[in-house]
Design a protein around this nucleic acid. Sequence first.
DNA 1: TTGAAAGCGCTAACAT
DNA 2: ATGTTAGCGCTTTCAA
Lengths: 340, 340
Amino acid sequence: MATDHRPLTLRDVSEASGVSEMTVSRVLRNRGDVSEATRERVLEAAKALGYVPNKIAGALASQRVNLVAVIIPSLRNMVFPEVMAGISHELEETELQPVVGVTDYLPEKEEKVLYEMLSWRPSGVIIAGLEHSDASRAMLKASGIPVVEIMDTDGTPVDCAVGISHRRAGREMARAIVKAGYENIGFMGTKMPLDHRARKRFEGFTEQLAKSGIEVMDQEFYSGGSALAKGREMTAAMLERTPELDFLYYSNDMIGAGGLLHLLDKGISVPRQVGLAGFNGVELLDGLPRRLATMDACRTEIGRRAARIIATRVAEPEAPVEPVIELSPKIDFGDTLRRR
Amino acid sequence: MATDHRPLTLRDVSEASGVSEMTVSRVLRNRGDVSEATRERVLEAAKALGYVPNKIAGALASQRVNLVAVIIPSLRNMVFPEVMAGISHELEETELQPVVGVTDYLPEKEEKVLYEMLSWRPSGVIIAGLEHSDASRAMLKASGIPVVEIMDTDGTPVDCAVGISHRRAGREMARAIVKAGYENIGFMGTKMPLDHRARKRFEGFTEQLAKSGIEVMDQEFYSGGSALAKGREMTAAMLERTPELDFLYYSNDMIGAGGLLHLLDKGISVPRQVGLAGFNGVELLDGLPRRLATMDACRTEIGRRAARIIATRVAEPEAPVEPVIELSPKIDFGDTLRRR
DNA sequence: TTGAAAGCGCTAACAT
DNA sequence: ATGTTAGCGCTTTCAA
């Protein structure tokens, strides 16, 4: 029955086991040579007392913090939990632990979160995107720890980057759509001046279309609300407004799925009459009546690679670094984009 | 151009500004009386150097860590990011910061994560569920910090709890279904012996049905894969096997939505011929052709309340504590459960 | 309003 | 195989 609530210290375990603090410390960290006998006594004492080591003190003394700061825009977009899964998985075999910070796509908040996380002196940083405030870039540079910028490779990383080229992704989708013979193309996406990756996809998309002399015929941007519902509404409105459209490109799979449901409702033939494509490869949607054409953003793989880079650099600080790793997502034609 | 990478310390700022470390510390924490002149000089020096305080050292010295450990089973189930959103939102007005740990529904992993987090000496713990290993409960008790168990109120908390009664939720849904005149009822859910809340809902559900002399006519449990697709498949299989079913109760909205899509595909009249209900109130699904009947799990509110309890207890350790706060979710009939 | 000294709980480095 | 000593970078406390 604990009544006093001073948390236990190494000293308590030391006294309970009749062994020096130093030896207790060694046992608890499996370090150095300790006889099996002492080892057991210490472990027993620690367990009996319910001792939980104080990492704060440990970190200060050892100048090592086995945390990896992971800074992402949001947890509500499934993309990021999936990246997290990749990171966690990869770090599981190491001493390192991920700690998440969320920026809500706001540069000021990113700056604040980054500052908070760096003040814990983590062993590395994994941060989404290549666009950061000058202050943020400065902090990252000055931190002196490995920094991996993820998701995007269109730009110059502070240290190194793992991701895909969203410009290229947009271009490739445009190429496939044109090749399939579609000509009257509409675009729908989030109204997010700060979602640079969506912006880059759109830029690549329009650029490539321009090469075939095609211009996006109608476009609409939304914010807030349920993506599925928004996709439905926007699609209905756009087809009403511009009935000659024969292809709709969506900046994410959820709104694309909403659009798909609308078209099926209306009895519009997909992909003959109207083709559709989204972006991400959201497994979530596998049960829909048709599989939406999409492009995998390689989320888990990106997380894995980024974590591996940090782990390697922590283990061997002098290991050579590849500044940019660009993964190559493939188009998944699904059932909503004609092949040919 | 920084070449040496010893991180900056208070001493560096002290030297750069010609003020004692102590005063620098006071400025950086807005503590005590510091003349406006020194204040500015210090701030300037800190900014020029790019100094980021070392929270490890600060926490050790002050015996205070402004972190709240949040321990949840998964990030891939949207329920938990939503709880997180509630927590973050509520903590935003305080000094406290949430730190997430994920257990994958495994008690051993929960134990490990809890141990890791407690070793950082957080100011409080928010942990999902009331079922924990003896070791975990012991750690929580011994920690001497406020602990809020969330999501569930069917059981006895270590310290205090905020959530809903899943037994009651199951009972209420059963009552509504019976009242609506359905009699041949099937159940589909996750094969998760460790998802205690889903289990409790199912128990409450069958109990209540029993009171009307009804027994669940068919049931199936799945694991893995895309929930939407699974819901579709399981529903198809179950109706094939037990065609006389007139109601399907799903343990979550995603599989319920899959089931709904299947029924609509087959041209089965919903909710006349077959009624459906899920659980959670997933906004995600708002764009479906019909709104699935469901029950809100009060996720954001739970997060908010839990965070508020921790914040209050941190500010006034002697504040009175209500051991269990039970929220009351209401049935949302949507378009798939007859009212009457 | 400012500074000096002591120490938070642990670990690195060096004895023994 | 085990112990001793000195600090990690801050904040608390007390003195000026």
